[in-house]
Amino acid sequence: MNVMLVSVSERRREIGIRRALGAKRGDIRGQFLIESIILSLIGGVLGILFGVGASVIISHFAKWQFALSSGAILLGVGVSNAVGIFFGYYPARQASLLDPIVALKSD
């Protein structure tokens, strides 16, 4: 959640610019929400690749049988996406409530 909050404060000015040019509160909220969803999905894919890769390497050296559990992958990705999207919504909402002039003046 902190990552998203930082991104909001860094991007306050961008929000002010977009609001001045005609973005509605809902447009800003939507933009930040979509960004957090995309970030969560990318994180999920990277997580799967990393997890599978690590498992393959470990099973190779430990001479274990390698098996993929689709249930475990779904659970992991599902939880990470839910967290990402849930905590993406909060800063997105804060961002959308910013006064355009306050947002423009922040640097």
Binding site: A20, G22, D27
Partner: peptide
């Protein structure tokens, strides 16, 4: 209201800062 003001800004006003 706020949404309508956004529309008016978008359609009628060009800002230069």
């Amino acid at each position: 209201n706020d949404d309508a003001l956004s529309d008016i800004r978008n359609r009628n006003i060009g800002f230069v800062f």
